[in-house]
Computed example of a mutant assay.
Amino acid sequence: MSDFWQDRPVLVTGADGFIGSHLSEQLVKQGARVRALAQYNSFNSWGWLDESPLHDQMEVVEGDIRDPLCCRTISEGVDTVFHLAALIAIPYSYRAPQSYVDTNVSGTLNMVQAAKEAGVRRFMHTSTSEVYGTAQYVPIDEKHPLQPQSPYSASKIGADQMALSYWHAFALPVTVMRPFNTYGPRQSARAVIPTIITQIAAGAEQIQLGDVSPTRDFNYVEDTCRGMLALAECDACVGEVVNIASNYEISVGDTLELIRELMGWDGQFVQDPQRLRPPGSEVFRLWGDNRKIRELTGWQPQIDIREGLRRTIEWFTNQDNLRRYKADRYNV
């Protein structure tokens, strides 16, 4: 392990979430001085950081990226910003699209402006493979057209372009990290892998899903976080958009069968109409090209889908973890 992050002051927005909590922990383990932003709430909850054995080694701050003053305050004295805070649920974006613009686009504007004023060394902006929409060709490289097939996707395209504009206009050292379909412990049950595992773990004889024909490029959360750190250490990545992908696709249906095998479940799958996206909004194929990140940093995934699912199942089937999920309800 290199000493690149030793004593380096780092801000992680969205540190209370799924990927953000894992990234914050990896940074602490590598010696960084982590300032972890959790979204302010009246419950005094730090999200997944409440459960982290390392949260007492972080400076946890509460705030909201929709507030420019908050963004300025948390960016002071920081070397590197990992910007992960966002609204991410696709179905909820159909109901509340304005909130996605406010958080994902305006919130990103607030953060890049704050980073510019603070003079940070690097601004690592988190994108999503959803911006590509259904693949026009595979594997999907960074030159693939952007297709806003949901309000969520549109807001992330806007956020990506806002971040990149600060590189072009103000020389803010921005990198757009574009992870494909991250999964693992702590993921929201609105995502397909936790949806399957939690229903089976709760004893369901039938599990309810949407369309199982789309393919996804799944990446275990530890691999995604390693990719983010590698990009932040790479000077040649400034001003670049870079996929974090496994270069492998698997259908939702085949993922279900793999989980069925690993969990020894012999129940039935039932299609739930409320879990189907509008026809023009479903992304039917995602398979990411990871050549660019390999060439720039040497990164490649270390945990294959079978091993990643085994670890994820082990975490979710722990009763202390499973009780945090409402397996009998559809998570929008």
Rank of each mutant, 00 (worst) to 15 (best):
Q271W: 00
P273G: 09
P273L: 07
Q274E: 15
R275K: 15
R277E: 12
R277M: 14
P278Y: 04
P278E: 09
G280A: 11
G280C: 05
G280E: 07
G280W: 02
S281L: 04
S281D: 10
S281K: 00
S281P: 03
E282A: 13
V283P: 02
V283R: 01
F284L: 08
F284G: 02
F284D: 00
F284Q: 05
F284T: 10
R285V: 08
L286F: 03
L286N: 00
L286T: 01
L286I: 05
L286K: 01
L286D: 00
L286E: 01
W287C: 04
G288K: 01
G288L: 00
G288M: 00
G288R: 00
R291L: 13
R291P: 01
K292W: 11
K292G: 06
K292T: 10
K292Y: 12
I293E: 01
I293T: 05
R294H: 15
R294E: 14
R294V: 11
E295P: 03
E295A: 15
L296D: 10
L296T: 12
L296C: 13
T297D: 10
T297W: 07
G298I: 12
W299S: 02
W299V: 03
Q300Y: 12
Q300I: 08
P301N: 10
Q302K: 12
I303L: 06
D304H: 09
D304P: 02
I305L: 15
I305S: 06
R306P: 00
R306D: 09
E307L: 10
E307C: 03
E307F: 00
G308A: 09
G308C: 06
G308R: 01
G308M: 04
L309N: 04
L309C: 06
L309T: 04
R311P: 01
R311T: 04
R311G: 06
R311D: 09
T312L: 07
T312Q: 08
T312G: 05
I313E: 05
I313P: 01
I313L: 05
E314V: 09
W315F: 14
F316Y: 15
F316W: 10
F316N: 06
F316R: 08
F316S: 07
T317H: 02
N318R: 13
N318I: 12
Q319N: 10
Q319G: 09
Q319F: 03
D320Q: 13
D320W: 04
D320T: 11
N321E: 14
N321I: 05
L322C: 07
L322G: 03
L322Y: 03
L322T: 05
L322F: 03
R323W: 03
R324L: 13
Y325P: 05
Y325T: 12
K326C: 06
